[in-house]
């Protein structure tokens, strides 16, 4: 009965919001504000003629490449930073500043250096996604519970064994959530790159339909990319809960 209530309320609030959208579009509050139903039918049309999927493919390309690079590089670097105080001293400040700074400002520079192709877009995704991945990994590695590390040493684990069998698994829930946050930041970067650098994929639909004042299509594209990102991130979160179910409760110290 409880989950039903929560589901009902979610549906109700979705109904209210979409209803308000519909009404605001019918008034209309602005010439550039289509109704909910117009937007949905534009979305349906793009789904049916396949343009949407082609666009998603384009948009996801730099995103996936960028995330893959950021994950490999970021986890490696984070591991290193977490294990060595010297690397911590050397690299942590860079990523701490990057985390706080509006890195989007680097885009014009990236375009000057790498042009307007895929490389620049991949870079945008990387600079957005990397800091949180690095900082999460290094923090998690640094904070591996001392008793676990001592246990490994007292049972004669080699450095390698301790890293691979104790530190990495202990850190993996936080590393994974760093990845999830990285993907979220990467989405922001991927869309930004398409709007700022060259219009491709979903960014192209948005820019093009705006230029011909086809607002329903523009809103539909935006709606779809947001839904895509939110669904994907939700999926990652579910996966995270599933994979690391016992980990967070299992430390004996939290009895």
């Amino acid at each position: 009965m409880m989950p039903q209530r929560s589901l009902m309320l979610t549906l109700l609030s979705a109904g209210l919001v979409f209803g308000a959208w519909q009404i605001a579009g019918m008034i209309p509050v602005s010439y550039a504000f289509p109704t909910f139903l117009e937007t949905m039918s534009a979305l349906l049309r793009m789904v049916l003629d396949g343009t949407l999927f082609v666009a998603f493919g384009e948009t996801l390309k730099p995103l996936l490449v960028g995330i893959a690079i950021s994950a490999a590089l970021g986890i490696g670097l984070g591991l290193w930073i977490g294990l060595s105080s010297w690397f911590d001293w050397l690299f942590s400040p860079i990523f701490i500043v990057m985390q706080a700074a509006p890195l989007a400002a680097l885009i014009p520079l990236l375009v000057m250096v790498y042009g307007i192709g895929l490389t620049s877009k991949v870079f945008v995704v990387c600079i957005m996604a990397m800091p949180v991945i690095v900082l999460n990994t290094s923090g998690a590695v640094r904070n591996t519970p001392t008793p676990l590390k001592e246990m490994g040493r007292s049972f004669l684990g080699s450095e390698r064994d301790i890293v691979l069998k104790i530190i990495l698994p202990a850190a993996s829930p936080i590393i994974f959530s760093g990845l999830r946050l990285g993907v979220s930041a990467g989405f922001i970067g991927a869309v930004l790159a398409e709007l700022k650098i060259t219009p491709t994929g979903v960014g192209d639909i948005i820019s093009y339909s705006r230029s011909i004042a086809d607002y329903p299509s523009m809103y539909a594209a935006i709606f779809s990319i947001i839904v895509l990102a939110v669904l994907f991130l939700n999926l990652l979160e579910r996966l995270e809960d599933f994979l690391f179910e016992g980990n967070n409760r299992g430390y004996a110290s939290d009895t």
């Binding site: 676990l148 246990m151 007292s154 049972f155 299992g250 004996a252 110290s253």
Partner: peptide, 19 residues
């Protein structure tokens, strides 16, 4: 000079691998 096979430790907070 370091941990050795002749000694084994039982930890106060168990130090079990949760995974």
């Amino acid at each position: 000079t370091g941990p050795g096979p002749d000694r084994a430790f039982v930890f106060q907070d168990f130090a079990l691998l949760p995974w």
